[in-house]
Design a binder for these strands. Structure first.
Length: 290
DNA sequence: TGCTAAATAT
DNA sequence: AATATTTAGC
């Protein structure tokens, strides 16, 4: 494990999407209608406008202001005016890439430390809540359980990849299958389940990595894994940029600093953007990694 | 109407 | 934090 310590981070980092890789994709997600609605000239010629210092979005073509979000409200027939701010958070869509990150985090934490809170911190994905992780973890554990049962009862196929031919792929497994499952996940041999560091240095992706967030109209993604960036039908998604991780390990105690409310800035961004229609989908951009 | 993913409640 | 239940979009 020693040699890995110095390498895992680097390897992991390589897997992460580059901002440059994210933008092109996100642009394809913008339908003409949406572009017009948002006053976006066109996908190929973004307007180099303002750049907020606290939201270091890569390139910008997206007005991430809440105001524009509101005015862009979908639909519009009849002049129906929808409440711009709904209090509910958008539904998070677990893309294979996001899931990979999740698995990666769990893998590096070890089963023992892999609890929602810790996983969330390690992932350091903006907009991701502990609840999101907990819910996903629940499903993932369920998946692992089933995976174990099928693999050990049959042959020695302990690899998750074997599920392809195992007849296990009821939709949900699709996502999970997209990411390799570390061996120790399947057999909790207490022999070596505690070989990982209790904590991470913090801020795994701080410099150039950032995850884009998309709000759309399809919470239930059935064919999501087939093709990314394809609105399929009349639906559209609106990608906007999120800020980098700044929510590191902060509140450990009850001490309250009078410092600056750094959090409020990003919270506001996400909040306004996501709350647009009441029920929106929040997802991280798919990247070509897998 | 049923299924599934994700949210929410316990 | 884990698990159970509800919500919500196809």
């Amino acid at each position: 494990m020693r040699e890995e310590d110095s390498n895992w981070f680097a390897k992991w980092e390589e897997e992460l999407p580059k901002p440059e890789e994210l933008m092109p994709l996100s642009q394809t997600l913008i339908t003409p209608d949406l572009a017009i609605a948002f006053d976006i000239p066109n996908p190929t010629s973004p307007n180099p406008q303002n750049k907020q210092q606290q939201t270091p979005h890569v390139q910008s073509s997206q007005p991430n202001s809440s105001a524009e979000f509101e005015s862009a409200e979908l639909n519009g027939p009849g002049g129906g005016d929808e409440p711009a701010r709904t209090l509910k958070r958008p539904r998070l869509v677990w893309t294979p890439q996001l899931h990979k990150r999740f698995v990666d985090a769990v893998a590096h934490l070890g089963i023992k430390n892999a609890v929602p809170k810790t996983i969330m911190q390690l992932m350091s994905v903006d907009g991701l809540t502990r609840e999101n992780v907990a819910s996903h973890l629940q499903k993932y554990r369920l998946y692992l359980k089933r995976m174990q049962g099928l693999s050990n009862s049959g042959s020695g196929g302990s690899n998750a990849q074997s599920l392809s031919g195992a007849g296990v792929d009821p939709a949900m497994d699709n996502l999970f299958a997209s990411s390799p499952v570390p061996a120790h996940f399947l057999h909790p041999g207490r022999a070596n389940s505690d070989h990982f560091m209790p904590f991470v240095p913090v801020t795994p992706m701080q410099h150039h990595h950032h995850m884009g967030v998309v709000v759309g109209h399809h919470p239930q993604v059935q064919q999501q894994y087939r093709q990314f960036g394809s609105p399929a039908n009349g639906h559209f998604e609106h990608p906007f940029l999120s800020r980098q991780s700044q929510q590191q390990v902060q509140r450990m105690g009850t001490s309250v600093h009078n410092g600056s409310p750094v959090v409020s800035s990003y919270v506001e961004d996400v909040d306004s953007a996501t709350a647009v229609n009441g029920r929106k989908v929040l997802t991280l951009f798919p990247t070509g990694e897998d």
